[in-house]
Design a protein around this nucleic acid. Structure first.
Lengths: 227, 227
DNA sequence: ATCGTTTCATTGACCAATCAGTCAACGAAC
DNA sequence: GTTCGTTGACTGATTGGTCAATGAAACGAT
């Protein structure tokens, strides 16, 4: 009797990293447990490089070292796969939260976060590709745009506001820093966004990142300290 | 004898606006003279909305009110059409140069240009779509990225630098404004770039543009005037 | 351990739809 | 009658999505 096709599981979009769970399983289950992560990583790279429409499922499969048909066992359509990638990709960024240390000075923590941002920009090759993905496909998949506005930028703004309040309380920043300029929190992260955009677009002009980073930090501190 | 197909002209990417030339021509020539502009506009809208890969030539033709086959008389391939659109789209932006008036105060001209930028953001529905096009397709068509970096941003920077020098000479801005912060010219336009990006991505969060504009201007003037 | 049986993750081969690009023929303008 | 701008209908290639067949691993019995 020919085996009937199984109904695709398709849920459990991110079972990666749970290697401990697969430890005591047989070879087949172990391989299966790793598939979603494999597929998601390959799909992320392809989507980042080519965008949604120009990415071929066949290429994703090849990159993941499996067949195209196997993808459909885990993700019913290309769009579903794309959504799963969007979540997979943005989850770790969301996780990198900043937590305010009430003991340390505000300027110190600001400098530290600032450096972390620019260092990450240099070393993590995925960040820029992901941002391009967000920009290119956000109007096709509104969920992506929402994530960008609320989680990514919104979270950063929230942390920054806390930091500014902390600095004001400690007398490091001007006592009216927050009220003086409405929207200062957004304005202050703009150079970070812009340099990422510039890197994405390229255009042959190379910016000196360390110079840019310094100018950015000087601007922020200047605004916050100015009486 | 069946008429042999003409070799596609395909050059002359922008014959639009030359209605005077077509004035004394016959009906057929007049219609023909308008075709490239028609096609370019329709293609621009479709490409902006869907990106390169997801745009159908058939849809461009429908929007332009002609048949798909006619497009191929003017542009030999989809890629060629896309390149023509890229040039067509960026030409008028390049043209909107700022010229420094040595008589008027620097702050006055800065405020004026600042307002013009944000007003244009509100009224011109094309600007954002074009920026998305630039971001999405720049790594497919390097020419687009080069245009962004050199012409768009580069031109703006150049004007800004002149303006700052003017203000320094008149004693409006701090005498060391330009040297104090290396890269200040780039940093200063970042909020403008960021708000455009935010509008593109959407995400349901509505920014108050006038509030943003004010915060941006305050930041710039604060930096320039600060001793 | 070893053999036969069952399970099921995996895939090659296959549709059906889409779409860039082609071309012979049409018909309005000249 | 001739020109030529225009197009409907076509093709070939690509690709999202399907499915019956496979074969190795898991398993039970000996």
């Amino acid at each position: 009797m020919p085996p009937k096709p199984h109904t695709a599981p398709a849920e459990d979009p991110c079972a990666c990293g749970l290697k401990a769970v697969a430890r005591r399983l047989g070879i087949r289950e172990r391989a299966k447990a790793l598939r979603p992560g494999q597929i998601l990583e390959a799909a992320r790279d392809e989507f980042c490089q080519h965008g949604f429409a120009a990415t071929r499922l066949e290429d994703i499969a090849k990159r993941a070292g499996i067949s195209k048909a196997l993808i459909y066992v885990y993700y019913p359509t290309k769009t579903d796969l794309f959504l799963a990638v969007a979540r997979h990709v943005t989850d770790p960024i969301k996780g990198a939260d900043f937590v305010l240390d009430p003991e340390r000075s505000a300027e110190d923590q600001l400098r530290h976060e600032h450096e972390r941002f620019y260092a990450n920009l240099l070393q993590d090759e995925h960040t820029l590709g992901i941002l391009r993905l967000i920009i290119s496909e956000s109007h096709r998949v509104p969920e992506i745009g929402q994530f960008y506005a609320l989680e990514l930028v919104g979270g950063e703004i929230e942390s920054l506001r806390d930091l500014i309040r902390h600095g004001m309380a400690r007398g490091e920043f001007a006592p009216d820093a927050l009220e003086r300029l409405t929207g200062i929190e957004d304005i202050v992260i703009a150079p970070g966004i812009m340099i990422m955009l510039t890197q994405i677009i390229g255009g042959g002009v190379q910016y000196d990142l360390s110079k840019w980073s310094k100018a950015h930090l000087d601007m922020v501190l200047g605004l916050l300290k100015a009486g």
